[in-house]
Design a protein around this nucleic acid. Sequence first.
DNA 1: CTGAAAGCGCTTACAG
DNA 2: CTGAAAGCGCTTACAG
Lengths: 335, 335
Amino acid sequence: MNKNITMRDIALKMGVSSVTVSKALNDKDGVSDELKEKIKLAAWEMGYRMNTVAKSMREGLTYNLGVIIPERFTGTSQTFYLRLYQEIAVALQQHNYYGILHILSREDEEQLHLPRIYHEQKVDGFILLGQVSKEYIEVIEQIEQPKMFLDFYDEHAEIDSIITDNFYGAYELTNYLIRQGHRDIAYVGNLYSTSSIQDRFLGYYKSLLEHHLPLRQEWILSDRDEQGTFVDLELPSSLPTAFVCNCDQVAHLLLQQLRAEGYQVPQDCSVVGFDNDIYATLSEPHLTTIEVNINKMAYTAVDSILKKIRDPHTSFGRVLVPGNIIYRDSVKDMT
Amino acid sequence: MNKNITMRDIALKMGVSSVTVSKALNDKDGVSDELKEKIKLAAWEMGYRMNTVAKSMREGLTYNLGVIIPERFTGTSQTFYLRLYQEIAVALQQHNYYGILHILSREDEEQLHLPRIYHEQKVDGFILLGQVSKEYIEVIEQIEQPKMFLDFYDEHAEIDSIITDNFYGAYELTNYLIRQGHRDIAYVGNLYSTSSIQDRFLGYYKSLLEHHLPLRQEWILSDRDEQGTFVDLELPSSLPTAFVCNCDQVAHLLLQQLRAEGYQVPQDCSVVGFDNDIYATLSEPHLTTIEVNINKMAYTAVDSILKKIRDPHTSFGRVLVPGNIIYRDSVKDMT
DNA sequence: CTGAAAGCGCTTACAG
DNA sequence: CTGAAAGCGCTTACAG
């Protein structure tokens, strides 16, 4: 298994030209089947490995895709984006593409620095995984390569995005609580933090509206600051019978706080989460929540961006990937 | 910001040759400082982006590194390797290198297929993250490019590896239990599953030996089958006062089982874990455990493999990265 | 069915 | 200090 076997080496050995070798190895027309097989066999015997760099240079495609995750979504306990990235990597593999992960540091985001994979033309397109600042979005928009938002969107940016159906998921979940007899339902999440939290809130609100239940300001609890750092929850003086949390992690935090203050879940009040991540089953009781379809999101994102690479004029708009309710033990039936 | 600005375009505009542009942009000698600055400015104004593919082809280096993780270590609850991968990606960024993640499917591992990044010469070297079968290791050994094992080793393979100091960590943790007055200490882990579990066991055993405590077969509890799937633990009829678990996740499982059988931790018996992952603080009580220095492991791995890429004759052997004990609430002081 | 030529965008000797 | 030439390993017209 010598290193640096090229098509030329195979051509020399076989007494043909490297053009013929290229055609044979790529299964193109213009070579007899018999010769093709011979060449393939020789290539295999000689331990030939395609030099993709040369191919890339020739074609002007790197066959790499950049996946950008803001650093702040990659904390020890935040595994969601990494799992999504993993699914993306697997999906890309199947299309002969490769993912290059770029963790966008806080400084680079603040100073509006594009990642080096952009400046070095290492990739054919970008998936931006996780919400960044408006200013950074504007910089991203300037990139003339295919790009796509994943798990968030921005109404001002003309960039395709793929998100989980936050609105409908929270709506369904709140409907479920109401069907279980709940009327006093609070929402936990900072409404000004991310589009996901906002949309989940609006789904919750729609459900209230449809059932003619009032929206009470004191029952909207902020869970984090604008940087995304969790803050202590302030429980309202009069406790609702149920809390719709914007994510499982904060539901888990709420559970601990309720327990600390002497409340039992779901006996004294019910709690639902969102995401169906590790916190959902590590919480006691296990959380009723919305399972996000990570796999579908990843596949959809990869399919879309590859289509855009092939044809830059393709556009998808905002694609919603539905999740589904997982029923567990954190909701009391009040009926 | 036009696309496909090349050095030649800059050269044409500046009335110099592309050789001079290349030298200026790469800060090489042979261009006056004045001209250098002018060229850099022009490049910036024209929105020039280096075509790294061309550079790669010329130099014979891809500036990519393959990180291979066996599929079976990437389950929903297994975030450790993904986090390690993330740290590797960040470390690589700082060296102008990029990581390409390859999830090694079960079928490919079984059928001894090397990843496509190998066959397509997409990378300059490999980090194999997570133990694979002996047979697969043998195939990996055939690769003539720099390669390295991370978080496991194989005594028969002449491949450098970087591992957390499992042996010493478990040894220290067991010593601590003994200092707290424990004498009847069990170990939880399948001794034939991975080198980590085995080495942690041996560290535990060394501590027992040093304190002249007997090793009791019925106090070695298997936690998983050979494929790595967790199995139900069989508690010994006479309960020890402490359990040394090979990882936090199984400690968490054990905690649940003990609670289900009516035992209180740490009042009735103590439990320690290993890894300091998410399970350590989600368990009730929080686990005393060994924190693995993920960051240092990633940096060491990246430094080493890059040195090997520069000089293929470099070799490091087995590098142990020490962890450290995190004291929490799962151990009772019996003294 | 097969191959000579050209070119993708760089960089490294080498010559001036 | 500056540049003409060659070449990295492919593939795409094009000619035979």
